[in-house]
Design a protein around this nucleic acid. Structure first.
Lengths: 357, 357
DNA sequence: GATCAAGTCTGTATCGATACAGTAGAAAGC
DNA sequence: GCTTTCTACTGTATCGATACAGACTTGATC
């Protein structure tokens, strides 16, 4: 193309062809509004002048819609791609977004409060999907202030925001009951992190209480109920944090459980990635899951099936699809705020078995 | 908040506080430009009026930057999350984008040409990363016309566009040479798709030639060179398409290779997901990989290590990081167009072995 | 007391498009 | 022949902000 001092706009093209700016706009956005010969002439001139088509930001401003929905993660973006559970969820969101021609903006969450608020304000989107965002996160206020549609997944206690999730407590109970039914009483729990991300090791009951993560509360609560019903004192149940939600981190943290005098006979992990890490640790130590020790996970990610992991299945993809639909399908103002609760089920595979004698 | 007939803007807040619009803008965007007491008064008034902060689209228009980079996939978005190779790449891109406060817009690619062009024009981004986009894709023109920074990965023959990739041909040779060195001459190849996505089955030499996918050409070319050097007639090498890049599809298509009279002694797959599918098919038939049949993949996705798959490792995450940096780091206009070629290596594991006798 | 600098704030001109109402001219209706 | 309808196009107002240059205080300096 020939170099120009200034970028070509609708007006440039309009002047060249000798029509109005509006007509050029129509040539792109509403082809049926003008004669097709003229349209061709306009597009031809646009090509010649190097006009790139209507500017996206300007169009977005004038039209009042962005053509994208924003996904907000509390963890780092790259983490979102590391966990198969997130990936399954994202995939569900992507399916629905895609089928309506909507883009997906993955919004980074900077560490500082001001920066985070700016990031939420700068996102050119038509709605937000909050993924595992703690109830009291500072950026949440900004998001709500923007007045766009919002849905939350998993984490939520605000009844004014539509929500897609599962019954965390009841689902966790499924795994715990499976273990107590098999006779296990010396049970340990492996979690991602409790208070501060990155800190690994045993978490006290107080720390468990102080966690801001509703999912964690729900799952630990479910475990606790069942174990207490079976006569176990929760204060004696080791709750070990891996620090990060990764297989190696869980394998390392599993040392706190496996290399001690009275090793638990069973481990409940609040996620499959953690459970798989525990299995790795067992393998290193020559412990056969299902015989020497029982391990149960949560989520039923694809790898779980291959590892023959007993777990609680939750429909990750469906969660994403439902969340996306809640954002994209317009709702009547009078309608009740939707709260979707998806079903879960226990999937018994090979990593759990009776108490070894 | 009190209901308002019209949305609050900078002006609304400015009028309320009795300052100029510019000052309110500064209160958000350049806090150092005004007295902090005044800033507080302004933010307070904004809260009271329900002003959500500067409008993202308007800000984007005026500033001339979007704060996001666009990722363009040719396949469906949901597919991007299904393949661990893509996920690794995305993760790399996300790491870099995130560290510079940039969002990631995943752009859907609609089927029709016009719709696709519109989608590319409507994306509010500061640059595009084209992921596995065929050289001659119609939407590519629109993207280039926008005049924003662009990088391509894998697929590329346009020297004017920066590129990050690997030496496909040489890398494919590594796998093929490994097999011929082990003595294999009856070798088959498994690919994703050749001409038309979704069509599974054997592909003729003509169809191979007609494929628009440069990655496929490179890899098949590498295999072919090595096999011909070993005295094999390429026309007799079965090239089987799985139709889709998925483990079950590959397992199903493997029937064309495994359930025939003169079964190949080795299978080269152009991707690990396909190779893993072939392994699944072997397992179903009681064939032990590495003993009864050799299977080699490409990519070295995380699952490959667990399946003990021999494969060619390419640095997926690094590819994403480099691509993102090329987009985000400004370059001198005079500078040569960067072309990054990342190293690959053969990883020999358990699924390849000598020819069974 | 004039000059200068720093710190704050204002005003205007734009960024690049689309919405919407309006108009000219041709074709159709009676 | 006059109104109506339709097609094809135009013009103006507006979307909501930021860039940039300027102006007004205030205090310090010589």
């Amino acid at each position: 193309m020939e170099p120009r001092t200034t970028r070509a706009t609708l007006q440039t093209v309009a002047d060249e062809v000798g029509v109005s700016r509006t007509t050029v706009s129509n040539a792109y956005s509403r082809p049926d509004q003008l004669n097709s010969a003229l349209r061709e002439r306009i597009l031809e001139a646009a090509r010649r002048l190097g006009y790139p088509g209507p500017d996206a930001a300007a169009r977005s401003l004038r039209r009042g819609r962005a053509g994208a929905i924003g996904l907000v993660f509390t963890e780092t973006l790259s983490y979102a791609f590391a966990d198969p559970y997130s990936v399954g969820f994202l995939r569900g969101v992507a399916e629905v977004a895609e089928s309506s021609g909507t883009g997906l903006l993955l919004i980074p969450m900077p560490p500082g409060t001001d920066e985070a608020e700016t990031a939420m304000r700068d996102a050119v989107v038509d709605g937000f999907c909050l993924y595992c965002m703690p109830v009291r996160h500072p950026a949440k206020k900004v998001i709500q202030a923007r007045g766009l549609p919002v849905v939350t997944t998993d984490e939520n206690d605000d009844p004014s925001i539509p929500h897609v999730g599962i019954d965390e407590r009841a689902s966790a109970r499924l795994a715990a009951e499976h273990l107590t039914r098999l006779g296990h009483r010396r049970v340990a729990v492996m979690v991602d992190h409790v208070v501060e991300p990155g800190r690994a090791g045993r978490a006290t009951v107080e720390e468990q209480r102080d966690s801001e993560c509703a999912v964690l509360h729900g799952r630990l609560g479910g475990y606790r109920e069942v174990l207490e019903e079976a006569g176990v004192d929760w204060a004696n149940v080791p709750v070990v944090a891996a620090g990060r939600n990764s297989r190696p981190a869980a394998a390392a943290a599993a040392a706190h459980l496996l290399d001690v005098a009275d090793r638990p006979t069973a481990v409940l992990a609040t996620g499959d990635v953690l459970a798989l890490g525990v299995l790795d640790a067992c393998e290193q130590r020559g412990l056969v899951p299902g015989r020497d020790i029982s391990v149960a996970g949560f989520d039923d990610v694809p790898e779980a099936a291959r590892a023959r992991l007993t777990t609680v299945r939750q429909p990750m993809g469906e969660k994403g699809r439902r969340a996306a639909r809640l954002l994209l399908d317009p709702r009547d103002p009078g309608e009740a705020v939707p709260r979707v609760q998806l079903p879960t089920e226990l999937v018994v595979r090979a990593t759990t078995g009776p108490v070894p004698r």
